[in-house]
C-alpha cells in the first residue's frame, strides 16, 4: 500500500469518525468554557481575598491557592472522582467532575493574576479612593477592578489556553472528549495522522480562537481606560495609525 493510498484510507476513516470527533470536540469546548467560567469566579474570589489587608481572609486564600497550584490536575481529578465518594461525596456526572477540577486548578493560578493585577493599579488610584472615603467594596468594584481587569487579561488568556490543554486528561474519568476521540481515530489510522494532524489542527484552531477573543477583550478594556484605539477603529478597513499611548495619570 503506497503512501497516497494510505492517506486516502486515513481520510475515509476521518469521515467515518467525523460525527464522533465533532462531538468530542464540542465536549472539549464545553469543558473549557465552563471550566474557565468557574475558574474565573474562583480566581476573583481568591484573588480578592488574597489581596485583602485582613489576615483572616488572606491566610485561607493563600492556603487554598498554594494547595491547588501545588498538586497536579490529574491528582485533583482522581480525588474528585474516586476519593471524595469514599467520604460520601459523590458527583454523579463525570462532566461536572471535569469542570470542577479544571475550575479549582486554574482558578488557583488565576487568583494570582487577579491579585497581582490589583496591586499593579497605580497607588495614586488607591489613594484617591481613600481621599473620597470610598468603602472597600465600592473602591474595588468601581475603581480598582475595572482597571485591574485590563491588566489581568493577558495572564488570563495564557491560563485559558493552558486550561484547554489541561482538559485533555479528563478522559480518565470516562469523558469522551476530543482527546479520547482522537485516540479512537488513532486505532484505525496512525498516531501521526490522528494526533499530529487532526488533533493539532483542532486544538490549535480552538486555542487561536480563544486567544483572539481575549485579545479583543483586552483592546476593549484598554480603550475604556483611554488607552489605544477602539474596537471599531481597529476593525475598520482603513485602520488609523495608533496615536502615541497616553499614560494613565501621565504628567504633561
Amino acid at each position: 500500500m503506497d503512501w497516497l493510498e494510505q492517506q486516502q484510507q486515513n481520510f475515509e476513516s476521518l469521515q467515518n469518525f467525523g460525527p464522533r470527533l465533532w462531538d468530542g470536540f464540542l465536549l472539549t469546548v464545553q469543558l473549557t468554557l465552563l471550566g474557565a467560567a468557574l475558574a474565573f469566579v474562583i480566581a476573583v474570589i481568591l484573588g480578592l481575598m488574597g489581596g485583602s489587608p485582613k489576615w483572616w481572609l488572606r491566610t485561607p486564600a493563600r492556603i487554598i491557592i498554594e494547595f491547588f497550584r501545588g498538586t497536579s490536575l490529574l491528582v485533583q481529578l482522581f480525588w474528585v472522582y474516586y476519593v471524595l465518594p469514599l467520604f460520601g461525596l459523590t458527583l454523579e456526572s463525570p462532566f461536572t467532575v471535569g469542570v470542577i477540577a479544571l475550575g479549582v486548578n486554574y482558578g488557583a493560578y488565576g487568583a494570582e493574576a487577579v491579585r497581582a493585577s490589583m496591586t499593579s493599579v497605580a497607588s495614586g488610584q488607591w489613594e484617591a479612593t481613600v481621599a473620597l472615603s470610598m468603602s472597600w467594596t465600592h473602591k474595588i468594584r468601581r475603581v480598582i477592578f475595572p482597571q485591574a481587569w485590563a491588566l489581568m487579561i493577558p495572564s488570563l488568556a495564557n491560563l485559558l489556553v493552558h486550561l484547554l490543554k489541561g482538559s485533555a486528561i479528563v478522559y480518565i474519568v470516562g469523558l469522551n472528549d476530543f482527546n479520547f476521540e482522537l485516540d479512537q481515530l488513532r486505532r484505525v489510522t496512525s498516531a501521526w495522522f490522528s494526533y499530529a494532524f487532526v488533533g493539532l489542527i483542532g486544538y490549535f484552531a480552538f486555542a487561536l480562537a480563544l486567544t483572539q477573543g481575549m485579545r479583543l477583550l483586552e483592546i476593549r478594556a484598554k480603550h475604556r481606560l483611554g488607552q489605544g484605539l477602539s474596537m471599531r477603529e481597529i476593525l475598520s478597513p482603513a485602520p488609523k495609525v495608533p496615536t502615541s499611548g497616553i499614560q494613565p495619570g501621565g504628567a504633561s
Binding site: 484617591a128 475595572p146 482597571q147 475604556r224 488607552q227 495619570g249
Partner: peptide, 12 residues
C-alpha cells in the same frame, strides 16, 4: 478632601 500632584482621576 485632597488634590494630588498627579491628579489621580479615575481613567475608567
Amino acid at each position: 478632601g485632597m488634590v494630588f500632584q498627579q491628579f489621580n482621576l479615575f481613567p475608567n
